[in-house]
Design a protein around this nucleic acid. Structure first.
Lengths: 251, 251
DNA sequence: TGGCCATAGTGGTCGGACCACATCGATGGC
DNA sequence: GCCATCGATGTGGTCCGACCACTATGGCCA
């Protein structure tokens, strides 16, 4: 797309300049990823903004469309970009939910002792979030929490229970007023992750205990008692954590 | 490339079977990503194991090598796979560090009010990690922490200070005995993230205060006092958090 | 005026070609 | 006999060009 090729392989002026500042570090695709990330963090690309076409981007960086597509795909999976077939490529809103969606992958692929550690992280965050929620929760949101609590107790279908269980904790996390924390907890409770752990846990007849713990959490929220809420949430997650610890590392 | 085309577009037998179980949900690349993720979570692919070649994988899923490469690239960026030029594609160890490396991207691209939330998450995790470290840290690791503390105080080069600052907290996180938490904190303290926030913070002459806070954290660790350690760490991160809050959302 | 449709532009997929690098075995010298 | 060297082979990395699927736009027709 440029005139005056400056080298035997036909690099454009722009490419030569880029090569001078960043001499072949890693693959061209990796460089393209860093480049686009850089454009965003430097403010050249705003959230929601549309990018040039794949073909144009590739030309600008002096690489092939294939390599550029790999870069775009990677950033898409990371929740940074969003490709709309027939329309164009856009920067996401870059909100917590967008960027932390990949956290689910971590939860799904973690195994062994690391799984216990992940649950420990969740215990720490969940207990704090619940304590914050107790201090800040609004009446209508508290009602929503109660709705999921009763719905959870009204059915025997494990699928439905799990769904309301997730929603129960999600409402609380949002009520804590920290969307980033809520997004992380969401990832740590991703559908497949919970199913993986809870299947075995609930098979040991832990339904009753789970219900009791949920009720305790709700009572603490209704009473606007942060300390009680923290304790209840920590105990709730801690129960599963301890069970999992015994499964993974039988001393 | 196959014989006996079974449809007007020339699908192979394998593709028809796959289509029957997973009817065109999303792009073929996305399907390939899910497929490989599934193979790993189901244990068909072990950590460290080598995968078939790109060409073979593409043939197995009935897609082109280009699409398969995009899938592999995405999983590589996510820290699930590792491609070694000339050798092959391998599953990573799937350890906390591998999978949580992408957390740095989140820290780098988060902005505005979400940045404060991210720092709040760090405060929660860091204070807990420091408390745990106070109870568990070994003498040699404590010595390593002290080394970074003194090195940090011995220089005026901001770059060097930052490096030792990072190492200081990293040693503590590792000493807490939860590699997953350490990996997350690592991501939340990624070089560019810290530089972005720290620059403005330190410009206000916060060096002295930072040193005092670090000293307090170390004293609590040396005294094996978890509560003091938690408080010191929380105050340390909280200082920055408050400053950032005033910068972002001037009420 | 309003809805429909041809069209241009975009991302999605494909196949093939070539290059750069790693690996390993054969070869040759010590 | 042993080890260093050097090829051959196979792998991921890059590029190209073509075509498909979808969207959006604008003009056309009722």
């Amino acid at each position: 797309m440029d005139e005056t090729p400056t080298g035997p392989t036909g690099e454009t002026e722009a490419e030569v300049r880029a090569t001078a500042t960043a001499p072949q570090k890693g693959t061209v695709t990796q460089r393209a990823i860093e480049r686009i990330k850089g454009m965003i963090s430097e403010g050249l690309l705003e959230p929601g903004q549309r990018l040039p076409t794949e073909r144009d981007l590739a030309a600008q960086l002096g690489i092939s469309r294939s390599s550029m597509r790999e870069a775009i795909r990677a950033l898409t999976v990371l929740g940074v970009l969003e490709a709309r077939h027939g329309s164009g490529i856009y920067v996401t809103r870059l909100e917590a939910g967008d960027l932390l969606e990949t956290f689910g992958v971590v939860a799904d692929l973690t195994r062994g002792p690391r799984l216990v550690e992940l649950l420990e992280v969740r215990r720490i965050l969940e207990s704090t979030a619940t304590a914050l929620a107790a201090a800040r929760i609004t009446p209508d949101r508290l009602a929503a929490v109660e709705k999921h609590l009763t719905a959870m107790n009204a059915t025997d279908d494990p699928e439905e229970i799990l769904a309301h269980d997730l929603a129960f904790h999600r409402e609380i996390a949002v009520a804590a007023g920290n969307e980033t924390m809520a997004a992380i907890l969401d990832g740590l409770s991703s559908r497949t992750f919970r199913a993986r752990v809870w299947r075995g846990y609930q098979e040991e007849g832990a339904f009753a205990r789970t219900r009791r713990e949920h009720a305790a959490i709700f009572r603490a929220l209704a009473a606007r008692d942060p300390e009680a809420a923290r304790a209840a949430a920590a105990a709730h997650v801690g129960e599963v954590e301890e069970w999992l610890r015994s499964q993974v590392g039988p001393s």
